[in-house]
Simulated scan of single mutants.
Amino acid sequence: MIFAHDTDVALRTAAALVNTALEPDDTLTTTQDVRAFYDVWGWTGRHDGDDSEVTQVRSLRRRLHAVWLAADDVNATVELVNELLRTGRALPQLVEHGDFGWHIHATHADATLAQRMQVEAAMAFVDIIRAGELSRLRVCAADDCERVLVDLSRNRSRRYCEGGCGNRLAAAAYRSRRDG
């Protein structure tokens, strides 16, 4: 494990959230979609389940995506992360629940889902920046894909998103060698 469990989960969750907007079809358009995302990624605390929440969560994706796009410029990334922390009213605190042991929640459990997502992602970005590991925030290397990813491999070798781009390109290269 490169980062603490909560950082790892927050980074992967932020990437998954950004990628809901980058799929061929937006996969986060209804209250049911937000509920499914909430459940799949193990969120706790407040979940309103209304259209306002959908709008807030969808709006957050653009701001998180900007962090990936700025990751080659630490100063620009720091500005974006600080803005996420400020506007999210971050208030880090240690909590223990479930099987996670002690970890950080950076907002009150009654904060809106979008606010909690924003601040949890920002706190994870803080860890990435402090560790000098911004290069782990990447955009998929496939020419026809814009999804984001977090390279948590030991040797920093992950290049493709979880959308199957790596397998698709490897299969295409194999066919080209076989047929060529």
Rank of each mutant, 00 (worst) to 15 (best):
A16P: 01
L169E: 15
E146N: 06
D179R: 14
D73F: 07
L69F: 00
L134F: 09
A172C: 07
R154D: 13
L80Q: 12
C161V: 07
D50L: 09
H105Y: 07
R63W: 11
I2E: 14
Y174F: 12
D151N: 06
D151K: 05
R158Q: 12
M117D: 04
R46G: 02
G164S: 10
H105A: 10
R159L: 15
Q56I: 04
R35Y: 13
V54E: 07
E96R: 12
E96A: 14
A15F: 05
A16F: 02
A21K: 10
R61A: 11
F100K: 12
A172S: 13
Q56D: 15
G42K: 07
N75L: 13
G49C: 09
A90S: 15
D6N: 13
A171C: 08
A131I: 07
A106H: 02
V150K: 02
E120H: 14
A131L: 12
V150W: 03
T55F: 10
Q115F: 00
C161L: 08
G166W: 01
N19C: 10
A170K: 15
T77W: 08
Y174H: 13
V34Q: 03
L152I: 11
V126S: 09
H97W: 14
G98R: 01
D48P: 00
A66C: 01
V18G: 01
H65M: 09
P24H: 08
D143Y: 00
V126L: 06
A76W: 03
T55W: 05
L11I: 04
V40A: 14
T87C: 05
I104Q: 12
D179W: 04
W102I: 14
V119H: 04
R154N: 11
H65D: 14
N82M: 07
G49I: 06
S59T: 13
D51L: 13
A90H: 09
N82I: 07
V119L: 01
D25G: 06
M117T: 06
V67K: 02
I104T: 13
M117P: 01
M117I: 13
G98S: 04
L64T: 10
V18E: 05
T55E: 15
L169S: 05
R86Q: 12
R89M: 13
V139G: 08
N75S: 14
L134V: 07
G42H: 14
F37C: 02
G163Q: 09
R116D: 01
